[in-house]
Write a protein that binds this DNA or RNA. Structure first.
Lengths: 161, 161
DNA sequence: CAATGTAATTATAACCATTTTAATGTGATA
DNA sequence: TATCACATTAAAATGGTTATAATTACATTG
């Protein structure tokens, strides 16, 4: 178990070892990815840091996220037309995503080697990896839905869709 | 085992039952989805049909794909910034995707209920479903790579990234 | 066989996340 | 200090997809 600071430092060491120059921007973006404990979009990162770097361009955020991706520090999560989200990933893990509010929560699962093996056998592909996401409704949205129904006190507005 | 024609007819019946008007465009798009045996992009469908319907607009393709999605006949496969691909799906199945050429091949797997159950327990979500894709290199691209190398005949090529 | 209203289609413009470009700035190294 | 590679900026371009408004086709009813 390591603190956020330690995670950032470790990431920075890894970047340095790969010959990546550590700029204030890069430090800040990394730090935000670690501290936010979430899976922010490029724009969220940009907005979160623009008070600190008033001249920073969005392109810088994208450029640096790409650098982080190349070193394997960060994974890009893509979901159709919406913005990509960026995941500072230490351990391999899967995501469960709320269909109502879009929240993304990590969970661990032993691995799905069996699926990979079967897919390889059946299709003749050589397999590199896989992607798995589970979809559902998060506890918060479940509660909101329950409250909306109760008796009929619409003192809470139902949102949905 | 049913023929392509039967599949199309069945799909059309289903659409009619849902009150969807069957226009020549819709018939042609459906037919292309079934016959192509692939997972075309909206633009591929558009290009494939523009000789038959010289005045057809791209918007029509998108509109009708959305109609098909609503009835559950077609699934949209989204991969980041690239174009969506559309899958005329009869049985549930998974996809394995070539990292080199982008080819998508179907395969079947008993099901991953266990993952869903575990994810639900750990996160408190109620689960609706999941998405799984396997990535690798397709046989064609393996052969191409082998041929490119052929000084020292590696009968199996290891690929990464 | 009109007349009517609804749904489909067209053409074009708008959208928006992301990337590219070209110019400028910065920092490490020798 | 000179140099050179790399970072950053600002703005424009890209490209898939959607929205808009006008037009057209179709099914239904009288």
């Amino acid at each position: 178990m390591s603190t956020d600071m330690e995670k950032v430092d470790k990431a920075i060491d890894l970047l340095k070892d790969s010959g990546v120059r550590i700029t204030p921007h890069r430090h800040a973006i990394l730090e935000y990815l670690v501290i936010s404990e979430s899976h922010p979009t490029a724009d969220e990162i940009y907005k979160a840091l623009e008070h600190k770097f008033p001249n920073m361009s969005v392109a810088t955020v994208y450029n640096n996220l790409r650098v982080f991706k190349k070193t394997g520090l960060v994974k890009e999560l893509t979901y159709g037309d919406a913005s990509s989200r960026f995941d500072f990933s230490t351990k391999p893990h899967y995501h469960i995503i709320c269909n109502k509010c879009g929240k993304i929560v990590d969970f661990y699962y032993p691995g799905l080697n069996e699926v990979e093996t079967l897919a390889a056998q059946v299709t003749g592909f050589t397999v590199n990896g896989h992607r798995l996401e589970v979809y559902g409704i998060c506890p918060d949205c479940q509660n909101k839905a329950a409250k909306d129904k109760d008796g009929d006190h619409p003192d809470q507005v139902s949102v949905t869709e």
